[in-house]
Amino acid sequence: MIRREVVGRYQGSAAGVLWSFLNPLFMLVVYAFVFSVVFKARWNVTGDESRTQFALVLFSGLIVHSFASECLMRAPRLVIDNANYVKRVVFPLEILPIVTAGSALFHAAVSYAVLLAGLLFFNGDLPVTAALLPLVLAPLCIGLLGLMWFFASLGVFARDIQQLIGMAMTALLFLTPIFFPATALPEDFRVWMYLNPLTLFVEQSRDVLVWGKVPAWAPLLLAYVAAIVLARLGYAWFQRTRKGFADVL
């Protein structure tokens, strides 16, 4: 089902699956131009930083947000768009979020391949810590899966939830240290940014991929615990409410 989801998205197009990395590459060029050329933004204002380096740092944060956004934006309509599985077929509905998350993870992996190629081309090598990226992103995947179970169920009963999630993800794009470092904020506001769960994964993935630093183990361990709890709660909510899907649909 994940393979069908990935291939079906580009079925009939001339470029096919090639669009899976042409899209993020195009957005990378647009964002890099706007922020580094128009607004003249720099990640390290005291150092000698090229526009290419800024673009790579920017891209590493965008991938995390895009992955989370694709998962959460599609979650509220998963059951609605597969109503035939609810009404006519004995089907394990709980795998629908897994299929969507797997498809989103494929596109994120393609984007990371582009990023790694860029780092290798422009920097000449890759940091050894890049191998730790799956370990950093694992709690994000687990936590998103829990939220997807919750929103997939909630979307059946409250159709407006998709619009609210869209607004929230747009806000998180600019409330997460993607276009600027967290240290650029005054300390009074910085604490609120660290309450944003995406901040941890954006900064940790950037550390292991771009800066060559090992992840901060204590926050990462806490993220694993929180993600597992969230996944269990989301799954329990989905299983408890699924009995009412057929009546609503």
Rank of each mutant, 00 (worst) to 15 (best):
V57F: 14
V110A: 15
N44E: 13
G244W: 08
W211F: 15
A223G: 02
Y194M: 12
A41T: 06
M193K: 10
F21H: 10
A15N: 09
A216F: 13
F121W: 15
L221M: 08
V136P: 05
A223V: 01
V45G: 11
L140Q: 02
A101E: 09
H107V: 10
E203F: 12
V37S: 12
A108D: 03
I2P: 01
L230N: 01
S205C: 01
R206A: 11
A83S: 14
P219V: 06
A152Y: 00
L56T: 08
C71Q: 06
V38S: 08
R232G: 07
I2F: 11
V37L: 10
P127A: 11
V17M: 07
L145E: 00
G61N: 07
F26R: 09
L78A: 04
A14L: 15
L115R: 07
A223H: 00
L133N: 03
W43H: 08
E187K: 13
M1G: 12
F157S: 04
V202S: 04
F157G: 00
R42I: 07
Q162D: 01
P177Y: 11
L25W: 12
F54S: 09
L105P: 05
L164P: 00
F21W: 15
L132M: 06
L195H: 14
I80N: 02
Y31L: 01
W149I: 06
A32D: 02
Q11G: 04
L147N: 03
K243E: 13
S111R: 06
W43V: 10
P181E: 13
A113I: 11
L133D: 01
T46W: 14
L96P: 01
G8N: 00
P181S: 06
S103T: 08
L137R: 04
A138M: 13
I165T: 01
A131F: 15
E187G: 12
P186H: 12
A171P: 08
M27Y: 13
I178D: 02
E49F: 10
M167S: 03
Y31Q: 03
V57L: 13
V136C: 07
E49L: 05
A227S: 04
F59S: 03
R159D: 05
V38E: 12
A41S: 11
F33Q: 02
Y31V: 04
A32E: 01
F59W: 09
F54N: 01
L22F: 15
C71D: 02
D160T: 00
A109C: 09
F54G: 05
V110W: 14
P134M: 02
I161K: 01
G16N: 07
L116M: 15
L126A: 00
L25K: 06
L221G: 10
I178A: 09
L135V: 15
Q11S: 11
R4V: 07
S153C: 03
R77L: 06
P97N: 02
L222I: 12
G166A: 03
F150W: 11
